[in-house]
Structures are given as structure tokens and as C-alpha cells.
Design a protein around this nucleic acid. Structure first.
Length: 651
DNA sequence: GGCGACCAATTTTTT
DNA sequence: ATTGGTCGCC
């Protein structure tokens, strides 16, 4: 077993061996932050702290998993409470949500963005609010912001203006609806734990003694709810340890307040502060470029990373004629690097928006280069996979009418929206969950509406669905897919629908994943599986071992590193993004975004931009990003390939 | 009332 | 690529 204190600098050692009391680690990019956090957890355990007494919260499952594995390698112990903010909160709520007495139970469903949006649309329809006047997505944003600020619909009621009053009503209806459905959204996971702890000193004490040591990763990206959570979970001993880098704050659009990290010392005057400014990842030239770029931000704490690594090669800035030429050029360089012996897994391409992956994918497919795309449409967002998940949600939470709608809709069994509405109306009147009503053996007598043969058949089908045991989870998912009849449904369509084959594959893959999960967690409940599925993110699917090129957005690349990095589309409109114009703070965040991208690279980085680009369905003239002008000329190699005649030959 | 077929609209970044 | 809306047909 490697020694916990091996190979650490003085500053790292100070952070690792810290025991009691608050601590802030300001860790620059590539300064060994993850190493410090994992070693500290290992150190605590080696000093007699129980692994279960450590609560560490990260932003992605991948970061959490990595921490657990490293701690296990150091101590042989797997700390059970290392996870994302959202998964930790979901676990706490499974046990304690009922204490809030808001009508929800521990069997709650976690709604993703799409589910959230459909509930909002429903509420808007009821409030006679036209979707063309007010975009549902905008309402969702408003609600999310309100929740992050702990504003109830009641406290917002005084808001002036007809429009916002309508909005408040929709918010209130949305909240009521979620409680009815026994469902929570992503914000609720955090908010409800905050509410629970705020109003219950005894429970707070229980948590404080259970979680003696609290660690928060990526503290610069915490929003107000996460901040409050941290405050509430911090006990009188103030054993709270946060790490972060204000220069890498890229989630303010999601409510992150990077000033949280600057104010930590104010919140905890006793805090020890450790600064990690030596970079172990990148070459001197990469770091010089990154440092220069970020120095253009005005609202920041002065910090200059240094490295003892090799000088390296200059960063490249390349101008290409168009988006296709850009993709072609990048793919050519990737192939060249591979020929020189650089594995594809050591290369990555970053971009600002998911849509920018298209031309790259086209070229990669043509060149036969395997790649993994992080983001875009996720596996669990596929229609057929969501259909299966809806079945499972219904099994756990009989009140989930959104899932019921989906299940009824994907069966084409002669039961449509109107029938489901009638079921919902009666179950609301009778005070019984819709699925309980449907699956009642005595459905025919208890249902007062007109019960067609098809509906009776559907009720019978629901009863059989309910009879499927929830565990072991792999067997359950297999049985549910079998019972759903989705596979034969797609089989029938295979000749007409070219995607039917893929969909069948995805259904089988869903079963496989559940079986894998069962192997890893033999005791897991269906609730646990659904929670896992609801809270996995794109970066979590990144496999650093796989022999292929990685493609992802600049947001998704945080926390990763690659020897060779390409950033494409470094143009006005993308970086900074169009939506951040006229907003100096937003432009600074865009600059941080590029900074994060550049600092992912170990050996070489290349930024490309195109003169023209196909957008919507016309050709657009593009202007190089203002950030490119900020890079130091002496350390950057600028190439103009926009006039290259090759673009005509490779049609 | 239900369903299949077709057309349009939406995507900045995401737990 | 999914979804929501509309239309014609059962």
C-alpha cells in the first residue's frame, strides 16, 4: 500500500495532515488538488476516523468514484459518503424526507429537466398561460432561481406585475403538483435537505455527530443552496474543508457564486488557508499562455501558477477557411499524432456548444477514427430507455402520473390521454394513487367511469407489472422490459423504422446495465438504481482507458486532463458565447472557460477558428475570438490556413 | 376516443 | 433527435 504522505510538497502536506477545524485549499489548475483531498481522507482514516464519518461532496459522480478508489488504494477502506451533492442529498432524503410532512414519501421520483418541463407545461395550460407568450424553459429557469434563493411562491406573491404574478401562480401550482406526484426536481434535492435541517435542530445534531468531517470539492462552483447545505452540515467543531479555484468557476449561469470561495475566510475566521500554486500537469509554455489569458479578468484574486516541467512547444492558433476545413484539419492532426505514437486516448477536442461536435463526427467517421462523445443526447434520455425507466418509476412510486402517462403512451394499447385523465381525476377524488387504483384487483368495480375492454386489459396489465419484484434489480429490469412488450413492438416496425434496431439494442443495453449494477451492489433496491440513473452526468461516462478520441464541451472537460488538447470554434459568438455579450461578468466567465480548456493539456494545445461557418442554413462570416488577441505573441504560433487550396480537393 | 403519419421547433453551458 | 401539434381514419 502506498504511503499516504509520500511525494508531497510542503503546502500539500500541510493540507493533507490537517485534522480539526475549518480549512480552505485554493488549488490552481493541475496543482494536485484531487491528490490532496484523497490523501487527506486517507490520513483521517489512518488516524482513527471511521470512513463513514467522512462526508465528501463533489459535482460529478466520476470525481467521487475516483476519490473513493484512491482512498481505497491508500487505506483499503471505501468511504461510503463520498458522492455528488445531489446523490448525497437524495440518500438523506430517502430516510428523512417524511419528517418534512409535505406529503412526499421516501419513494419519491427524481424528475429530470424534461419531466420538469412537462409538469410546468401542464401547470401553464391550467393557468391559461400561452406557451408562445412565455417559454416554459424560461419559467423553469425562474423557478430554479427562486428555489436557489429559498423563495417560496408565497414569499413571491407580493411581486408586482401581471406577468410575474402569473408566473408565481405557475410556480405554486408546480410545487403542489410535485408533492401530489411524490416527485422532486434537482433543486429540491438540495433545497429539501436545507429545509429539513433548518427547521430541526435535533436532526442537525444527529447529522453533525454522524458526519464528523465534511469536505467540499470545486467550492467555486457552489450555488447558494449548496453553500447553505455546507453551513448546516458543519457542526460546532467546524471540521469543514473546502477546495477550489476561483479562476475555474464556470457555472454562474446555474447560480454558482464564486465569491463563496473568497468569503470562506469571512465565514470561518479560524480557517487555515493553503494555496497550491505549483502546477504538475502542463508545460511552461502552456501555463504561460493560460496565465496571460486569465490575467485579463478584472475580478479575481491575483494568482500566478508556476511549473518545473519542461518548456514544451508553443500553443498553436490556427485559422481555417470553414467549419468543415477546421474539422478536417483537426482530424488530420489527430491521425498524425497517432502515427507518431500518441494514443487516441491521450487526445481530446473541446468546443463551446454540443452542436459543434457534428462536423467533427462527420470527419472522424469518414477517417475511421473511434471517438467517445461526452454529452449530447444521453443514453438515459433516449425515448425507449426513458419508457423503461417510467415503468420502473411507476413500480416504486404509484403516484407518479407523469410516468403513468408515458407508460400508457408507449404501449399503443387502446388507452390514450383521455382515459388516463379520467383515471387521474378519480384517483385524486378518492385519495388513492393512480397506479394503486389501476392495479387494484377489483378495478372494474372501483372505477366509476366507462371501462372499455381495452382499459380493463390495461388495468390487468398494470396489476401484472406491479407483481414484478423490485429486487434483485437486474432481474427486475429484465422482467419489466419483457412485460412492457417494447421489444416485439420495435421488431414489428423494423422494416419501416430504421431506428428500431438501435432502439432494441438500447433496451437490451438497459437490461445489461441494470444487471451490472446488481453485480456491483447485490443488495441494491430499485430506488437506488433509479437514483443512480437520474443523477449520472455526461462526464461520468468518460472512460479514460478506452482507445479512442474524446469529444466534449468545455464545461464537461473540467477535472480531466489530456496530453494533447484541441479547442475548436474559438470565435466571437462561441467564445465568448453570443448570449454573454454586453455582460462583462459573463465575458469573464467565458474567459475562464477557455482557461479551463487550455489548462487541461499536458503537452500541447491547439486553438482553431474558422472564417466561415454553416449556421442555421446559411454561411456566416466569423470573427476570431477576442481572447486570441490576449494570448502572448511570443509564446504562440499562429498559422493562417484559411487560403489553403486543399479545401477544394478533398470534396 | 385513439392512433399513425406528418411537420415544425428547439439547443449554451448541466446536477 | 425528441416532442407537440394537427389531420384523417378507425
Amino acid at each position: 500500500m502506498p504511503d499516504i504522505l509520500d511525494n508531497l510538497t510542503e503546502a500539500q502536506l500541510e493540507a493533507v495532515t490537517h485534522m480539526e477545524g475549518p480549512m480552505l485549499v485554493v488549488a490552481g489548475a493541475g496543482s494536485g488538488k484531487t491528490r490532496v483531498v484523497t490523501r487527506r481522507i486517507a490520513h483521517l482514516i489512518s488516524r482513527g476516523v471511521w470512513p463513514s464519518q467522512v462526508l465528501a461532496m463533489t459535482f460529478t459522480n466520476k470525481a467521487a468514484r475516483e476519490m473513493v478508489e484512491r482512498v481505497e488504494a491508500l487505506t483499503g477502506e471505501r468511504p461510503p459518503w463520498v458522492g455528488t451533492f445531489h446523490s448525497a442529498c437524495a440518500r438523506l432524503l430517502r430516510r428523512d424526507l417524511e419528517k418534512l410532512e409535505d406529503g412526499r414519501t421516501g419513494q419519491f421520483t427524481i424528475y429530470d429537466d424534461d419531466d420538469q418541463l412537462s409538469v410546468i407545461k401542464l401547470c401553464m395550460k391550467e393557468a391559461n398561460l400561452n406557451q408562445h407568450d412565455v417559454a416554459p424553459a424560461a419559467v423553469r429557469g425562474r423557478i430554479s432561481r427562486a428555489k436557489c434563493a429559498l423563495q417560496d411562491p408565497e414569499t413571491l406573491a407580493g411581486d408586482s406585475g401581471w406577468h410575474s404574478n402569473q408566473m408565481v401562480n405557475v410556480y405554486a401550482a408546480y410545487e403542489r403538483r410535485l408533492r401530489e406526484l411524490n416527485a422532486v426536481d434537482f433543486d429540491d434535492l438540495l433545497l429539501l435537505v436545507v429545509r429539513l435541517l433548518e427547521g430541526n435542530a435535533a436532526l442537525r445534531d444527529v447529522y453533525h455527530s454522524r458526519f464528523r468531517f465534511l469536505l467540499v470539492d470545486e467550492y467555486q462552483d457552489t450555488n447558494r443552496l449548496q453553500y447553505l447545505l455546507m453551513r448546516l452540515l458543519t457542526g460546532p467543531a467546524q471540521n469543514v474543508h473546502v477546495t477550489g479555484d476561483p479562476d475555474q468557476s464556470i457555472y454562474s449561469w446555474r447560480g454558482a457564486e464564486y465569491r463563496n470561495i473568497m468569503e470562506f475566510r469571512h465565514d470561518f475566521p479560524a480557517a487555515k488557508v493553503v494555496r497550491l500554486e505549483q502546477n504538475y500537469r502542463s508545460t511552461q509554455l502552456i501555463l504561460a499562455v493560460a496565465n496571460e489569458l486569465i490575467s485579463f479578468n478584472t475580478t479575481r484574486i491575483e494568482k500566478e501558477l508556476f511549473t518545473e516541467n519542461d518548456l514544451g512547444v508553443p500553443a498553436r492558433v490556427v485559422k481555417l477557411a470553414g467549419d468543415r476545413e477546421e474539422a478536417e484539419w483537426v482530424v488530420e492532426r489527430v491521425m498524425e499524432l497517432r502515427l507518431e505514437g500518441t494514443s487516441l486516448r491521450d487526445q481530446a477536442v473541446f468546443y463551446r456548444t454540443n452542436a459543434q461536435s457534428r462536423p467533427l463526427e462527420d470527419q472522424l467517421l469518414r477517417a475511421g477514427i473511434p471517438y467517445q462523445l461526452i454529452g449530447g443526447t444521453r443514453f438515459y434520455q433516449r425515448k425507449e430507455v426513458k419508457d423503461v425507466i417510467a415503468h420502473l418509476q411507476l413500480l416504486v412510486n404509484p403516484r407518479d402520473a407523469v410516468a403513468l402517462h408515458r407508460v400508457a403512451g408507449c404501449r399503443a394499447a387502446g388507452v390514450g390521454a383521455k382515459s388516463i385523465e379520467a383515471i387521474l381525476a378519480q384517483s385524486a377524488a378518492d385519495g388513492v394513487a393512480p397506479m394503486d387504483l389501476l392495479a387494484d384487483p377489483d378495478f372494474r368495480r372501483r372505477y366509476r367511469g366507462r371501462c372499455s375492454a381495452k382499459l380493463a386489459e390495461f388495468a390487468e396489465w398494470c396489476r401484472a407489472l406491479r407483481a414484478i419484484p423490485g429486487s434483485p434489480v437486474g432481474d427486475c429490469v429484465e422482467a419489466v422490459v419483457e412485460h412492457s412488450g417494447l421489444l416485439p413492438l420495435y421488431e414489428e416496425r423494423e422494416d419501416r423504422d430504421p431506428s428500431a434496431g438501435d432502439r432494441m439494442d438500447n433496451l437490451r443495453a438497459m437490461v445489461d446495465r441494470a444487471c451490472e449494477y446488481q453485480q456491483e451492489h447485490p443488495e441494491a433496491t430499485l430506488e437506488a438504481l433509479l437514483q443512480e440513473v437520474a443523477l449520472v452526468s455526461d462526464v461520468d461516462t468518460h472512460d479514460p482507458e478506452s482507445e479512442c478520441l474524446s469529444l466534449m464541451t468545455l464545461h464537461a472537460c473540467k477535472g480531466l486532463e489530456f496530453p494533447y488538447v484541441f479547442v475548436v470554434g474559438v470565435e466571437e459568438g462561441y467564445l465568448p458565447h453570443l448570449n454573454s455579450r454586453d455582460n462583462p461578468d459573463a465575458v469573464e466567465e467565458e474567459r475562464r472557460l477557455l482557461y479551463v480548456g487550455i489548462t487541461r493539456s499536458r503537452q500541447a494545445v491547439c486553438l482553431t477558428h474558422a472564417v466561415t461557418r454553416f449556421l442555421w442554413d446559411g454561411v456566416q462570416q466569423r470573427v476570431p475570438s477576442r481572447f486570441l488577441k490576449e494570448l502572448p505573441n511570443t509564446q504562440v504560433e499562429r498559422l493562417n490556413l484559411a487560403g489553403n487550396a486543399r479545401r477544394w480537393s478533398t470534396w
